[in-house]
């Protein structure tokens, strides 16, 4: 199973052993699992990530707003990834970044320079009309914008959590999301 998910004590634990959320070519299907609920109209998803262990440099995890739960659905994902530092090959710091698919027929997009972060870190995506804003925070109060982008999603979408670990053949990548909040705008 590419993704396993459990819920206990108010926390979601996701274990990913394969999959890949594509970003370079948006006509390639994602191979990911998604733990989701519905969100109609404007709103947001926010979660506090307290654990991000054993993810390969091509692995990642985060919160996602997604138009359709099928391989080529439009999405924005505010995520953590393990990055490779050129001068420090043994160091694999965690960074906050995004991936998204704006159109099935076009090139995808990602933040070119992800920001290095330390756990815990809060991730958030807000939707207002067709505008999607991904942010992260070290304390749940002060937010730093990762990306704001227009994505033509329908009125009823899914909000949730995802994780993937493309080359994690020997180990699961484990991520814990605490205090997950999906809110519909008033």
């Amino acid at each position: 199973t590419p993704l396993q998910a459990t819920f206990a004590d108010g926390k979601f634990t996701l274990q990913a052993d394969s999959g890949m959320l594509f970003f370079k070519r948006s006509d390639e299907a994602d191979g990911v699992g998604f733990v989701h609920r519905s969100l109609e109209g404007d709103g947001s998803i926010m979660a506090k990530v307290t654990k991000f262990d054993d993810f390969h440099v091509w692995g990642g995890a985060g919160v996602m707003l997604r138009d359709e739960n099928k391989p080529l659905g439009l999405y924005m994902c505010a995520m953590l990834e393990t990055v490779h530092v050129k001068d420090q090959p043994d160091q694999h710091p965690i960074a906050a970044s995004i991936r998204m698919r704006r159109q099935v027929s076009n090139e995808g997009f990602r933040v070119q320079r992800p920001d290095q972060v330390k756990l815990p870190v809060w991730l958030k995506i807000e939707r207002q009309g067709q505008t999607f804003r991904s942010s992260y925070s070290p304390d749940g109060k002060e937010w730093k914008l990762l990306k704001e982008m227009e994505i033509p999603m329908g009125p009823k979408i899914s909000a949730g959590l995802t994780a993937w670990n493309r080359y994690g053949k020997t180990k699961f990548g484990t991520v814990v999301f605490d205090d997950v909040q999906v809110r519909k705008a008033p």
Binding site: L3, A5, T6, F7, F12, G31, F34, V35, R37, K70
Partner: peptide, 19 residues
């Protein structure tokens, strides 16, 4: 069981696989 089938994680939350 089909590992790609959707299943409930906790009330209101569903795990789906696609791709």
């Amino acid at each position: 069981a089909d590992p790609f089938a959707s299943r409930s994680v906790v009330a209101g939350w569903t795990l789906s696989h696609f791709g």
